[in-house]
Simulated scan of single mutants.
Amino acid sequence: MIEMHDVYKTYDNGVVALNGISVKINKGEFVYVVGPSGAGKTTLIKLMYRQERATKGQIVVNNMNVTSISDQKVPLLRRQLGVVYQDFKLLPKLTVYENIAFALEVTEAEPKVIRQRVIDVLKKVGLTKKAKHLPQELSGGEQQRVAIARAIVNKPAVIIADEPTGNLDPETSWGIMDLLEQINRDGTTIVMATHNKDIVNTMRRRVIAVDHGKIVRDEYGGDYGYEN
């Protein structure tokens, strides 16, 4: 599903963010990527959806070689992925329905297909009654649910989440995690970068710890392992 072989990432300013990363994530897994600030975990997940390009090495995501595809084929890669951000990245002038539908419109899906899929995911994330609201009319947790709905509306094989609970209070965070768990049970692979010690320690999934650009721990049923 996701494979990295001897991956390096050095930025233009000389900072080495990743230093020889090799890892395999199988279909249907739920994986936490943890580590101190500046350890390289955000770079690691950005490479998966080609937000950043590796300096060296090979990355394969859902049978696509991410390191060698042209820029023109990046949208094709991202149609197979759903990305969830800490700051939601919703379009402020579009309603909840329109924000989710936009992810399908760019793939030129039929209007009938768009309508049915948007209705389905709104129900899944519990926001059917908020379809006509604008993002600023929603709570932080509701906005993140919209972001998740947008990420799953294309029925992606993989969800990549970068600190999806980072701006949320503890109770709301657990609601988001319950939703991600449900999506994972449906068969979607989830890779989530997080600083949330309580979530990692409670849910006990696979934990990949990154420090100084290297994987220092890869443990099934692992704990967070750092002091916040």
Rank of each mutant, 00 (worst) to 15 (best):
G126E: 12
V113W: 04
Q116F: 04
T172R: 04
K24N: 13
L18T: 08
R185F: 03
D87R: 07
I199C: 01
N184Y: 07
T10C: 02
G221S: 04
T10S: 08
K129N: 14
I160D: 00
I100Y: 07
T194Y: 02
Y8S: 08
G187P: 08
A151R: 00
A109R: 13
K214R: 15
E227Y: 01
K24R: 15
F88N: 05
N99W: 01
T165M: 01
Y97L: 05
K93W: 10
N63D: 15
V83D: 06
R217F: 05
I59T: 02
V207H: 10
S37F: 09
N13F: 03
P156G: 08
E137R: 10
P111D: 13
E110K: 15
V74S: 05
R206Y: 00
M64L: 15
G187W: 12
K46H: 12
F102Q: 09
K9A: 03
G82T: 01
S22Y: 02
T107A: 14
T189N: 06
E142V: 11
A151P: 05
V61Y: 00
K46T: 04
V34H: 07
D223R: 09
R50W: 12
D178V: 04
A151D: 04
I114E: 10
K214D: 09
L94I: 07
M64P: 00
Y226K: 09
Q51S: 07
L47V: 09
L47Y: 01
I208F: 03
T42K: 02
Q58S: 15
K123A: 14
L134S: 08
T10Q: 13
T42N: 07
E227G: 08
G213W: 02
S139L: 03
M48S: 03
M48D: 10
G57T: 01
G222P: 09
R53S: 14
K73Y: 09
L179Q: 06
L180S: 06
S22F: 01
L180G: 00
Q80N: 14
P92F: 07
V34I: 14
I69A: 03
L91K: 01
G213V: 07
I114F: 03
T202I: 07
E52V: 04
D162T: 05
A149T: 08
N196R: 04
I176V: 15
Y8V: 10
A131P: 04
S37W: 11
K129M: 06
V216F: 11
